[in-house]
Structure formats: structure tokens, C-alpha cells
């Protein structure tokens, strides 16, 4: 995957290259200079410190799967990484690249949004950290400036009283492009929903949080009825298109099905 600058006519960061190499060769044009972030050893690795998980921009999808700690601190990301493309792509593609390519169907973004992740952007003039929620501004657009490099992704280690789930609905099981991707995160405090994050993939111009669905749950005692209402809210907030994989109508239905299912599973696992 790539971390491609928005207006990069001359320079672009190259992650694993599993998207950018194909794009460059299909169009016959590419940036004059590629910075191979994927090979910068300093940017590869997973650290867990002070209740925060941080992964460098060169960390691959396989790195996520092969680090036994990840099941504790980001089980939902592991779930997603597990159904991400095929082995060779997982060995090459970076988590950062999956964010930077900006695809609305990017599989790793919903779980990262569910985990409440932030990204670190670095340029010659300094470094800033922005929440992944709000990072995307539209179809393949983001707040990252052309001279900024996405160097790290981080999220808080989930608390014990929390659960999260991811599901990828594809037209086949292996190596598929997502029709609908949903990830949820719920934490409970005193019997009511404390933090709720619901992230939706492939049902809008970019991967998005359904704030309306989250608001339905927030501060309420979970119930089947409440979950159904949240799922309805998420469906209402989604704006999927028709494409070769599925109709918008089906996608909307599936947002309902999957949000409901994943919230139910998450909450059941906490009870």
C-alpha cells in the first residue's frame, strides 16, 4: 500500500506498493521520485507503552497478524488483517498504506476507527497527530498535506470492559474487495454503554463513523431494541453506491444486519 501525497506529481511515498505499483503501471505515469517508506526499518514495528499501541508506517499487515500481543490490544484489527487480501499482499502491504490509499473499502480502516486510532503526520516543518476520525474528507481525499508523511498510527489499549468486532462482507471469502465492512467498539460502565464507535466501510465516499448510531447507544443500557435502533441509524447515515459488487440498496440492508449483529456479539461477550 502506499502513502501517496495528494498532489504528488514529483514525490510520493511508497509503502508496500501493492496499490501504487499497479496504478502507476496502468496509467503509465507516476511520480518522478518514490520514497520507499516500506523499506525504512525505523518506521517498522509495534510498540505498546503507557496504554498506547503505536505502529510505524512500514508495519505490514502480516506484522499485525504475527505479533501475539495484537490479539490483546487490537483483536478487531487482527480480525480484519486476517481476511485482508492474500498472504503475499499481507506480507507487503502496510497498515499506513491502507489508510493513505483512501479507498472507501479499505479493510483496516474500520477497525482502526473503532479502536479510536490517531495518525501522526510529519513534514519538514514538524509533526502533528490527528484523529483518524475526521482524517478523510471525501473520496480518496484527506487532511494530509502533500508534503506530509504518515509515519505512525496509534490507539489506546482497550479497557477490560470493552469489546469490538469486525466483519467483511465480500462476494467471495478469499482475497475479495469488500462490499460492506463494519467494525464496532463498545465499552460498558455501570451497566450503560460508555464508549461506542461504529465504523462503516464501502458504504460512502470514505470509511466513516456513524455518529448517529453511536449516539443512540451512548449512555444507555444495552438492549436488543436499542441495538436495532442503532443499526437503523447507521443504515440511514450510510450512502452507498451501486457497483459491480453490489447495489446500494443491498449495502444499506447489510449495514443494518451487520451493525446489529456485531453490536449484539460484542455486548454478549461482555455479559
Amino acid at each position: 500500500m502506499i502513502a501517496k501525497a495528494k498532489t504528488a506529481n514529483d514525490v510520493a511515498p511508497l509503502g508496500g506498493g501493492t496499490n501504487l505499483v499497479v496504478e502507476m503501471r496502468a496509467s503509465g505515469v507516476g511520480p518522478a521520485t518514490l520514497v520507499s517508506v516500506g523499506q525504512l526499518a525505523g518506521l517498522r514495528g509495534i510498540t505498546i507503552a503507557d496504554g498506547t499501541v503505536t505502529i510505524g508506517a512500514a508495519t505490514t499487515v502480516s506484522d499485525i497478524l504475527r505479533d501475539p500481543r495484537m490479539k490483546q490490544v487490537a483483536a478487531v484489527l487482527v480480525e480484519s488483517a486476517d481476511v485482508f487480501a492474500g498472504q503475499m499482499i499481507r506480507n507487503t502491504a502496510t497498515v499506513a498504506g491502507n489508510i493513505c490509499c483512501g479507498s472507501p473499502a479499505a479493510d483496516l480502516v474500520p477497525p482502526l476507527l473503532a479502536l479510536g486510532a490517531s495518525v501522526t503526520l510529519r513534514s519538514g516543518s514538524g509533526e502533528r497527530t490527528v484523529p483518524l476520525d475526521g482524517y478523510f474528507t471525501g473520496y480518496k481525499t484527506s487532511v494530509r498535506k502533500p508534503d506530509e508523511l504518515l509515519t505512525a498510527i496509534s490507539w489506546p489499549v482497550p479497557t477490560a470492559k470493552s469489546a469490538s468486532r469486525f466483519y467483511k462482507l465480500g462476494r467471495r471469502r478469499g482475497d475479495a474487495i469488500t462490499m460492506v465492512g463494519v467494525s464496532v467498539f463498545v465499552s460498558l460502565k455501570d451497566g450503560v454503554c460508555d464508549t461506542v464507535r461504529i465504523a462503516l466501510g464501502a458504504v460512502g465516499p470514505c470509511v466513516m463513523r456513524s455518529k448517529k448510531a453511536e449516539a443512540v447507544m451512548q449512555g444507555k443500557a444495552p438492549s436488543a431494541d436499542l441495538i436495532a435502533k442503532a443499526a437503523q441509524a447507521a443504515t440511514a447515515e450510510s450512502t452507498p453506491i451501486d457497483d459491480i459488487r453490489a447495489s446500494g440498496e443491498y449495502r444499506k440492508e447489510q449495514v443494518q444486519v451487520l451493525v446489529q449483529r456485531l453490536l449484539t456479539q460484542s455486548l454478549e461477550s461482555l455479559s
Partner: peptide, 16 residues
């Protein structure tokens, strides 16, 4: 043709 690649034309993988 709107499915001219092996990511759009879906043969069964091992997972399937």
C-alpha cells in the same frame, strides 16, 4: 466488460 481483472472476476480461492 466491467470486470476485466481477476479481482473483479471472482474465481474461487482456497478460502472458498
Amino acid at each position: 466488460l466491467v470486470t476485466p481483472s481477476l479481482s473483479e472476476y471472482l474465481c474461487p480461492t482456497s478460502m472458498d
